[in-house]
């Protein structure tokens, strides 16, 4: 085989991502260390090398001190992690039987069904979340249906329950797809061998199928957990005033309070929280490439 020069293809995307992905993070980090007074909009710092010493001299951890002393931020972080953790567990519980069921179908049915699972992902996220408002609101479709069968109405919209429903609904394809990929390529002869050796179907599932699907489960869990921690649209539209999530906090700091350093500091902390799961996810992607 000839010497490969394909790595040259990396130059353009590398430069693009360095400028539009890497440098912006540095800026977020830097602004998070500035005082509010330095950076109240219209905040227009142009880069001047001569100003840098003065700029760095003015950096401090004031914003972080505010962040840690204000219990609202701390609770927002903890509650985001709780939401993401519980929602990911729910997604696994709901997504696994679905992915497993699909993987047991014949080849043609299987492909059609998995397409049906992916399809909603292509319709607007915002619209799918919005659809739940009409269902869950007090004078909504759910309560109309409940009333028809004589069950007293529920008030779900603007509660944490509504946020969980929205999260599970919006992220279900992200859980099902990697799980299905792992389950689908399993060799049926393994289960036959287990059956021949006297295993009940349940034992065969638990000892053979399930352990082999764990990489898919891990991929699905990461693919859901990481973005959910920073989720904004779902808690904003379906949650109540008491629903605390860090994505919503960053949005409010930025758009309502115009406190850019606080938004940057909150984003920096969020990023650091997510570094471990993101690195795990990257490892998985690298494995896919090596496989």
């Amino acid at each position: 085989m000839r010497r490969d020069k394909s790595a040259i293809a990396a130059v353009l995307p590398f430069a693009w991502l360095a400028v539009l992905f890497l440098i912006p993070f540095v800026l977020v980090f830097k602004l998070s260390l500035s005082d509010v007074a330095l950076s109240i909009p219209p905040y227009e710092p142009q880069f001047k090398p001569a100003d840098l010493p003065a700029f760095f001299g003015a950096l401090d951890f004031e914003t972080y001190r505010r962040l840690t002393s204000d219990s609202i931020y701390v609770s927002a972080y903890l509650s985001s992690l709780k939401f993401a953790g519980v929602a990911t567990a729910l997604l696994a519980l709901i997504g696994y039987p679905l992915a497993y069921g699909i993987s047991r179908c014949s080849k043609n049915t299987r492909e059609m069904l998995i397409l049906a699972v992916i399809l909603p992902f292509f319709t607007s996220f915002l619209i799918r979340v919005y659809a739940w408002i009409a269902i869950l609101k007090p004078a909504g479709i759910l309560n109309a249906a409940l009333e028809a069968v004589g069950i007293p109405p529920l008030s779900i919209l603007h509660t944490d329950t509504a946020v969980y429903i929205g999260l599970v609904y919006a992220y279900l394809p992200f859980m099902v797809l990697p799980l299905y990929a792992a389950l689908e390529k399993q060799n049926a002869t393994l289960l036959e061998a287990a059956a021949d050796l006297g295993a009940t179907p349940f034992t065969a599932f638990w000892r053979v199928t399930f352990p082999m699907s764990l990489p898919g489960l891990a991929a699905g869990a990461l693919l859901c957990f990481i973005p959910i921690v920073g989720e904004f649209v779902i808690p904003d539209l379906l949650g109540g005033s008491g629903t605390l999530m860090i994505g919503k906090t960053i949005w409010t700091e930025f758009f309502s309070n115009r406190d850019w350093p606080a938004a940057s500091a909150a984003a920096t902390v969020l990023l650091f929280t997510l570094i471990v799961p993101i690195v795990l996810y990257q490892r998985q992607q690298a494995k896919v490439l090596a496989a």
Partner: peptide, 26 residues
């Protein structure tokens, strides 16, 4: 490089949005 390529897949949008805005302002 592979880190930069795959990270945006899972990066919360608020972080990407805020960081890009700061770049454009800068």
């Amino acid at each position: 490089f592979s880190g930069m390529v795959y990270a945006p897949l899972v990066m919360p949008e608020v972080i990407t949005g805020l960081s890009l805005l700061l770049l454009f302002v800068a």
